[in-house]
Design a protein around this nucleic acid. Structure first.
Lengths: 124, 124
DNA sequence: CCGACGCTACTACAAGTGTCGAAGGGCGCA
DNA sequence: TGCGCCCTTCGACACTTGTAGTAGCGTCGG
């Protein structure tokens, strides 16, 4: 279940708030994307076909709800990246992130914090 | 500079060994992919157009060399993933990976090791 | 010097993605 | 009850990706 760039944007909106009508989703993303209403509608319907959204008609309006969690979608995306670019090894991705010189001090600090939390959770 | 699934496979082969002729690249990926020689050739040429490969004719054969490092390509892929799926926050990706219940014991151990290494590198 | 074989270059085509416009139908207000 | 407005449905088009065939040229062996 791979999502394209544009599809992620719509899904994000729906994970934030759902069920939502096409008009509502359009309202949520229009400013950032500049998409026409019909563009949003088309993509929403394609996402329904793909099975990652469910639509329910209320009166003459469709309301969309995700059928997959953001967590699941993220996992699947990470998985795909690791498969493509890191030889299937999640450790490779870790190594890349921690090695990367482009890692900012702030990001490094975040990682430290996360690690501390992980330690605490793992130890007891 | 985004690479598709198939393009990653070819680039991986070239990062392993380059310059390489189309025939050599084909040899390297044919078993795993089943692609015809011309398929590989077409994709290589598209990668040249994209600017991620450079080709040099030697006699009547083209030899291909990456113009971007695997590291750079990986960074860019991680970047893209983070932008799409983690709200642009690299920390979000970290959190996802460390939270993920699907994280195996082995992966957890790897992470611990990497963290230890990072600590050692960051402290002094 | 000539032919065969390999390599390149060009073309093709289907599916997926990004983007909309046009047209038609029904709900709600006057 | 009728009209308008908004929503849906369909279709369209260009570009990318995956996948490959064909034709023609040049190189090397004989």
């Amino acid at each position: 279940m791979q999502l394209s760039e544009a599809e992620w944007k719509l899904m994000q909106a729906l994970w934030r708030s759902s069920p939502a009508s096409a008009r509502e989703v359009h309202g949520a993303v229009a400013a950032a994307t500049g998409w026409a209403y019909t563009t949003v509608k088309t993509m929403l319907d394609r996402l329904v076909e793909k099975g990652v959204l469910r639509s329910k008609m209320r009166s003459n309006q469709a309301f969309y709800t995700p059928t997959v969690s953001q967590e699941a979608a993220r996992s699947s995306a990470v998985q795909a990246l690791v498969a493509r670019a890191f030889d299937g090894k999640l450790g490779g991705l870790f190594a890349h992130m921690t090695d990367d010189d482009a890692l900012s001090a702030k990001e490094r600090a975040e990682l430290e914090a996360l690690l501390a939390k992980l330690e605490k959770k793992a130890k007891p």
